[in-house]
Write a protein that binds this DNA or RNA. Structure first.
Lengths: 100, 100
DNA sequence: ACTTCAATTCGACGTTTAGCTAACTATCAA
DNA sequence: TTGATAGTTAGCTAAACGTCGAATTGAAGT
């Protein structure tokens, strides 16, 4: 879970997730939205992969990235949900024991 | 909002917020929960203050920290809420409509 | 005034991170 | 097989971060 928050601490990576919210996209397609080099984007992708926030599928010579929404939700809602009960929509977020 | 995610990217700071969820605490009281020096904790506090996640009130020679829950909620729910509509209870008092 | 206590600020140090270019791997088409 | 294209890896630099001990500020207590 630490990895999720670490991944979310960068604006570029959060923006990538927002783009992926609409539809899966290839690495290059994503990279075109940002004013940084492709290698830089590639390391951002790897951070997102290690946080398990996205799924990478290689198709031909491209890589398709998909958002893993449940992981995002579990982390953020699980965290904020522990603070205010207002926030939990009943079906989700079992209150987890510890986190550190 | 970037400041909020930056602040949340450190486990110590997240833990501070969790302690503050129960009740307001002084800086020293909070610091006693962690195996790091007081100056280190002080910088963590200042990051949380700048993210507007806590409020600091000086009382005598101590400083009382309080969680600002609404800021936490606005940032995290606002973000994750943009991804899945499931997650949004419309910010404040839903007057009539039973959510369904 | 002096001392003590709570907390922050100040330098300094080592680590991590975002960024780059260049080089590499892998896939597909001529 | 050669060339082009998509993406990642390698090696580097500069900035940011977390941590510390020492010094500093501010508010009692003596």
């Amino acid at each position: 879970m630490n990895a999720v928050f670490k991944a979310l601490s960068d604006p570029t990576r959060r923006h990538v997730l927002e783009l992926l919210r609409e539809r899966p996209m290839t690495a290059g397609e994503l990279a075109d939205h940002f004013p940084v080099s492709k290698p830089t984007m590639s390391t951002h992708f790897s951070v997102l992969r290690e946080a398990n926030l996205v799924d990478a599928q290689k198709v031909g010579k491209t890589v398709i990235y998909r958002l893993k929404l449940s992981v995002l939700e579990d982390a953020l809602l699980g965290f904020v949900g522990a603070f205010s009960a207002v926030t939990r929509p009943a079906t989700a977020a079992p209150i987890k024991g510890t986190m550190s």
